[in-house]
Each structure stands twice: as structure tokens, then as C-alpha cells.
Amino acid sequence: MSLAMFVQHLFNALTLGSLYALIAIGYTMVYGILRLINFAHGEIFMMGAYFVFWGVTLFHLPWPIAVIGAILVTSMAGIMVDRVAYKPLRNAPRISALISSIGVSFFLQNFAIVVFSAIPRAVQRPDWLVKVIVIDKIRILPLTLVFPVLSFILMMGLLYVVYRTKPGLGMRAISKDIETSRLMGVPVNRIIAITFGMGSALAAASGIMWALRYPQLQPVMGVIPGFKAFIAAVFGGIGSIQGAVIGGLVLGFIEIMIVAFLPTLAGYRDAFAFVLLIIILLIMPTGLMGEKLEDKV
């Protein structure tokens, strides 16, 4: 493999990895606060993508406005999912909300089939994202430069909210001890809604970029990226935002590089992720940066 080829693969890996990372953050944040794996998260990702292309093709909105609008509507949808499907189960055993999330996932997929139709749609991409740049024999799709940068900016924004703002402090408190957070006057339900909203916004951003990368929309497009991002979150240590980012990037690299270096195994690319999940759960169940039990009395 030539160096030029390798660099191209590197950018592809970075793109895929950062898209996984954006989804994985949503899994990990919701888990961190509610100890719930929100299996409907992949469908939120799908909805983000559909909303944007609705906005562009149906309402003829300019791209930036369609993107921002879609992200806002999707985060509302994420908050609604929590309201309808998880909030009534807050005091129920944890497995109930998990099952509820699987139900929401199926519901949203089928809802999308009804509303958006099951026929895959091609996505019209703006030229500037796909006009290949050639630098010294390296052929790069502009979007493989733009998407990782955008993802990075979004992640920095999220980290800022979590570590530097008051709602972020509330989130970090709730993730450890909901009852004591209440005693401190933290409006728990509002913070949970903000968490769902932010996680869904990132998933929507990822879904939009995904649809531009693999220019196609379909109602089940969120399933496999959703599972992979979940694996990324577990690999990084579920509950840890930094872990989700690292897990997403690592998974993106593994996937692209396996296909690049071992093209005969390309058909198994999805299987690798799941094998990775099994290995992590066997040898390192708390992941790279997961919560270790503290021994301090």
C-alpha cells in the first residue's frame, strides 16, 4: 500500500470514528445519569438525517438553516422519547426502561417507514463537500476533512457544557447520586431532559454527516451505526464521555484499516465490532475509562 493510499484511509477512519464518537457520547451520557442503555438512540440519529433532507428538498431551506433546524427538532424528539417512554419508568426496575427503549427503537423505525417510506433515498450533496482535492498524489474528499473538524468542535462544546456550566455540574452530580442532587436543589428532571436533548443533538449531527458521507437515507440506517457506537461507548467505558470519544475513534480506525489491509475480510467488517464487544466484556468490562470502584471509606 502506498503512503498516499494510507493517508486517504487515515482520513476515512478519522471521519467514521468521529461520527461513531458523536453517537457514542449520547449513549454514555444517558447511561451515566440514568443507568439506561437508550437503544432508541440509533433512530434519533436516523431522524436527524431525514429531517435535514426534508428541510432541503421539501421546504427548500438553505443548508445551514436546515441543519440547525433538524438538530433542534431532533433534540426535541429525544426529549420527547424520554418523557413518553422512560420518565414514567424512573422508579421501575432498570430492565423496564431498557425494554421500553427497544420498543421505542422499533416504533421509530416503523414510524419512519410510514412517514418517510422504506425506499432508500439518494442524498444530493453540495459540491464543495465532494470535489476531490489532490495534494501530492493524495486524493482527499473535502468532507473527510470537514466532518472530523465539525465533530471535534461539537465535542469541545459538549465538554464545555459538562465541565464548565451549572447544568453540567448538575449532570455530574446526578450521575453519582440522584437523591443527594435533589437535596442540593438540582432540578433533576430538567437536567435529564437537557442530557437527552444534547445527546440527541449530537446524534442528529452525526446522522446528517453520515447521510452526506454515504449518500443515502433509509429508515433502518441508524441500526448498525447505533450498535457500533454502543460498542464504542462500552469499549471506552460506559459513563465516560472521553471514553466514548476514544472508543468511537478506535472503532472507526479498526474498521477502516481492516478493510484496507485485509480486503478479503471486508465482508466481515461489522462482525469485527461485535467480536470486539465480546472481548471487552470478557476481559475489561468497565472499558478503558469506566468507573472503577473507589476504595476510599
Binding site: A173, E179, L183
Partner: peptide, 22 residues
Amino acid sequence: PEGRRIFPHLTVLENLMLGAYS
């Protein structure tokens, strides 16, 4: 509360700021 229930993963200052959340 009983058992102190401070937030072990937050700094002393962050714990105090949480007390002032409202």
C-alpha cells in the same frame, strides 16, 4: 444528609457550588 453523601468525584469547591445550585 445522614452518611454525609458528599460527591466523591467532584472537588470541594464543586460540592459547595452544588449546594448553591438553587
